[in-house]
Simulated assay, not measured.
Amino acid sequence: MRIVMVLLLLLPLRAFACTGQTACSLPEGSYHVREPDGWDGVTPLPVLLHFHGWQRQGTLIVNHARIAGHTRRRGVLLIAPNGPGRSWDWWNRETDNIAFARAVLDDVAARYPVDQDRIYVSGYSWGGAMAWRFVCADGADVAALLAISGTLDQDKECDTHPREVRHVHGLSDTVMAYPGRGSGDLAYPVSLWRELMGCDEGSQPKPWQAVSWLSFERTSWDCDRGRVVLDRHPGGHFIPHGWIGWQLDQLMGRVPTYP
């Protein structure tokens, strides 16, 4: 028994005390963690940092079937920071939320063996705009942005960009409307990244499906400094079934599956 106790004390420090519904606390705020199924406690983990929507919290994210339901099956560590006042300040470059998100990533790296080449940043709605703001200001080490129904104005200036951008938006979204819909330019929602990353003319739109009841139309751009992907669907303001899992599979070189 004494030997067992000694061995337990020698194990690397991990977030045993703050997973799931129990938040990890920092001076800047708090966040939640969802470990992947069957993780051995040693293998370096890809990370998905996900910014929640308006008036939500990380407690929802770590149990969300369309977010945690995909990360936990793919060996990805899900990180869900709690926005101050259940919101995010993504309006300007000086927002404290950028430093908070970076502090969360640093704290996670101190608790877990993180695969530094596979740091993904995501967000939905208000959180999607915050995800854009974060990688625009401090995204040089981000492998990919996975943004859902939330953007910045396309005339913003960015100090950094991720290696890859993947954005999905509904053409019938009435909460955060499809950017540029009135102009007829269906590629407008990612024009900021296309200009910043030096992209080509783009592919012809191609249809695909993760589930039978929702079709996407995908346009992709190969760029001097990465890659940009835009998925459009005919629906409104929601996290599409299977979308996050599909992107993670492709980014990690796997055959995409659902769920």
Rank of each mutant, 00 (worst) to 15 (best):
P36M: 14
L26E: 15
E28W: 12
P189N: 06
A23L: 08
V42G: 03
H70P: 01
D115Q: 06
G128Y: 10
W193P: 00
Q209L: 00
P44Q: 13
Q247A: 10
G150V: 07
L8Q: 13
L77N: 01
I98Y: 00
L230G: 04
L145A: 13
S87Y: 09
V211Q: 12
V211R: 05
T160V: 10
T174Q: 13
E164W: 00
S149V: 08
T174A: 10
L10N: 03
G180Q: 02
A109R: 15
Y124V: 14
L196C: 07
A80E: 02
A129W: 03
E195D: 11
T174W: 12
A144S: 14
G180F: 01
E217P: 00
P46R: 01
V255K: 13
D107H: 15
L186C: 08
D159E: 15
A68K: 05
F100V: 05
R14W: 12
S220W: 03
A17K: 07
R56F: 02
S30K: 15
A109N: 07
D138A: 11
T151N: 08
E28A: 15
L10Y: 06
P179W: 05
R163G: 02
G182H: 08
D173M: 06
G85K: 05
V142I: 15
W193M: 09
S30Q: 14
D141V: 08
V142F: 00
L230R: 03
P162F: 04
V33T: 12
H50T: 12
D249L: 10
V175Q: 08
R232D: 00
G242Y: 05
G83T: 12
I67D: 00
E217M: 06
D115S: 04
Y31Q: 00
